[in-house]
């Protein structure tokens, strides 16, 4: 099978670029710990309200962990609990969320906090809130007629 010299050059360039991208992603994910949210823990979707930590949604200071706070959200059609929350600037926070009914998409607009919440599963993500401001929390996975009304607020304050 004949391949033009220029095509070989192009494919070598292309494959090298793909390898560089994959290496950057791989090092960031596996060495620096920047994995996409992939929590493996589960919860009974019927008993969310009585299961820790979802029985107390909101921000809680924790000790002896790799993060300083845990921020717990419960999603249901069509609301988030808590409806608004303040986070101290620079806090390292584990965001923990689940849903009581259908699938929702937990997104804090303008940040990398973006994860699917699915009934029966717990979703988690650790991040440092290092920029002050008011951030809109919304649902980015269609969940029914009030999907676009589902909202909350995170204030990052000094």
């Amino acid at each position: 099978m004949h391949m033009h010299k220029f095509e070989k050059i192009w494919l070598i360039f292309g494959v090298t670029a793909l390898l560089v991208f994959l290496t950057v992603l791989g090092v960031s994910a596996f060495y620096l710990g920047n994995q996409p949210p992939s929590c493996l823990a589960t919860v009974d979707p019927e008993k969310v309200d009585t299961t820790a930590p979802f029985n107390e949604p909101g921000l809680k200071k924790v000790e002896g962990k790799d993060w300083d706070y845990e921020l717990v959200f419960v999603a249901q059609a069509f609301a988030y609990t808590p409806g608004d929350v303040e986070v101290p600037l620079g806090a390292k926070v584990k965001v923990i969320a689940t849903t009581k009914d259908v699938i929702h998409g937990f997104e804090v607009a303008g940040t990398n906090i973006n994860m699917m919440v699915e009934p029966g599963y717990i979703s988690e993500l650790v991040t440092t809130f290092d920029k002050p401001g008011e951030y809109l929390v919304l649902c980015n996975e269609y969940c029914g007629s009030g999907h676009h009304m589902m909202t909350s607020k995170i204030k990052v304050v000094e």
Binding site: Q35, P37, S38, C39, M115, V117, S123, E124
Partner: peptide, 8 residues
């Protein structure tokens, strides 16, 4: 990629 239940 952003869903729970699947190992990264």
């Amino acid at each position: 990629l952003l869903e729970p239940g699947i190992d990264p």
